[in-house]
Amino acid sequence: MTESVLRLDHFNFFIGENQILNDINLKFQRKKVTAIMGPSGCGKTSMIRCINRMNEWVKNARVEGEILFYGKNLFQMDPILLRRKIGMVFQRPNPFPTMSIFENVIAGYLLNGIKLSKTDKERIVEDSLRKAALWDEVKDGIHRKGTFLSGGQQQRLCIARALAMNPRLLLLDEPTSALDPKATSHIEELIIELKKTVTIVLVTHNIAQASRVSDFTAFLYLGELVEYGETTKMFTVPEDKRTEEYLTGKFG
C-alpha cells in the first residue's frame, strides 16, 4: 500500500446552519490522481477549498474533524506555509489583472517577497508555462496583461501559476470546464505527466476524463462520501446504486 499524503478524518464542514460536508473519511495516495466526482452542489469545491484552508475566508464557515497533511493536522499549521505547498486552481480562471503574463506565473514569488534572479525567473516562467501547455501561444507576448488571453488560456495561466510554486499537492477544481477539446487533452496529458512528481486532486464532472487520468475516484453525494476506490474498478462495477446512476447519466 502506498503512503497517503493527505487524509480527511471524520471531516465535517458547515456554513452557518447548513452542513456542507458530512463525516468524510478519505485518503489521497502519494503521486496519484484522485478524481472527485458528484452532482453539482454536492460539496466538491467546498472539500478542496478546505484542504487549502480557504474555508477561513468564507463567512460563518466552521470545520469539525481533521485533515492530515503528511500526518500533521493542517488546521494547526501556518496557513501561509501550507498554501505554498498546496497549489490550487479555481473553477473560474482568475489571473491578476494588474500583472503581465510573466508576472502572473511568478506571482507566488513576487507577492510573497521571495527574491529570484533574472535567469531563475525566466526559467521558472518558461518551465511552468510549458508544463501548462501555454508557452507556445504566449511566448511572444509574455509581458502583456494576462487578462487579454482567452478564457481557456487564462485557466492554463492559473495552472502555471500554481505549478511555479512547486507544490507537493495540486488541487484542480474543474480545470478544463472552460477549455476546448484540444486544450483539454493538453491538460490531461499534463496531469498524467505531473503525477510523476506531485499528488493531484481533480474535481471533474467529466466521466471520461476521470477514467482517462485518475487512479482513484471518490464519489460525493449531498455532502457525503458515497463510494471510494480505484477508478477502473469503480467505473466497471460500482458498489453503490447512486454511483451507478450517476455514471450512467441518470442524474447530475
Binding site: N52, M54, W57, P79, G87, F90, G108, N112, R161
Partner: peptide, 13 residues
Amino acid sequence: MSLKEASLALGVP
C-alpha cells in the same frame, strides 16, 4: 472575491 482567493491560495499573507 476570486482574485483575493487566488493570492491567498498561493500562500500570500
